[in-house]
Design a protein around this nucleic acid. Sequence first.
DNA 1: TCATATCCTATCATTTCGATAGGATTAGTA
DNA 2: TACTAATCCTATCGAAATGATAGGATATGA
Lengths: 156, 156
Amino acid sequence: MLFNWDLVLTKYELKFSTRTRYGIRSMIEIGMDTSGKGVFQKQIAEKQEISVKYLDHIIHALKTSGLISNVKGRKSGYVLTRPPDEITMLDIHNSFESGICVIDCLSPNITCDRNERCAARGFWGHVNNKIINYFKSVTLQDMIDEQSCLDDAVNL
Amino acid sequence: MLFNWDLVLTKYELKFSTRTRYGIRSMIEIGMDTSGKGVFQKQIAEKQEISVKYLDHIIHALKTSGLISNVKGRKSGYVLTRPPDEITMLDIHNSFESGICVIDCLSPNITCDRNERCAARGFWGHVNNKIINYFKSVTLQDMIDEQSCLDDAVNL
DNA sequence: TCATATCCTATCATTTCGATAGGATTAGTA
DNA sequence: TACTAATCCTATCGAAATGATAGGATATGA
């Protein structure tokens, strides 16, 4: 049997993508750099244990969305384009996905004649908003502070 | 190109499954029945615009998890096994999935040596808890009340 | 007994996923 | 100037899960 309806071991349902996860970790890495020279792909790959080749895509997306740039030209390192307390988790997430939309009928592109009389849709809307609002409320600075704490704890 | 990294039109990332969505709508349908005879698969299918055959799986899962049962034997209708204010959205969701876990490393089954020093993991844990808590806080009774309101509005 | 609603298992095409690969391009530097 | 190394860009892979349908077995109320 391909699909066991009795006990579905959730694997893909409601997962955030690996690209988003790696994206956040890369941003923390870049945001925490104190060298002033920026951070190289290679450095991120090593420290965050991600293959350089896969990181290619992550970095590309972060660059395209305008969250990071090279200090000066190609062979320098990457830096943030604005202060970390002005970058939210939603900004990073949206570099990889077109937004957060837990079910299709919440999208304005979808027309469903049940919308006006569907209690379930209201519920899903609330779920969606809660997730979005939390992503908006956490900044990269928060993550950097948290990571600093964890690093200190290890070094004690 | 199979995958455009510049603008990923999210389709499957962070979606709740159709089976869970249909499950909630079916439960509302069953919970709102006032006939005392229970609700038949066919009725749910018609009113909720879901194929009878697909609903087969939905009903089966709800039955297996103990949320619904036949009033008396096979050819009666389905009824709730407990009051709707004692059934949460999480109960319904978990009839179809093994739980809510937005990234794998939150699961106790996964061991990652980064756990203790990964700020990102803390963030994902918060996201996960927020979703779970909201699912716990909304009962089927809430949904029924909401649906009643919507129905009334239409009939005015 | 007979129609019918349920139960149960199998299967399908589609889509996304994470990941890798190969090479083109560019820019620091020796 | 030539070399080296980091980037950029496009293509492709296998694996997995998804929504949905199908066919028939089983049981039951009239």
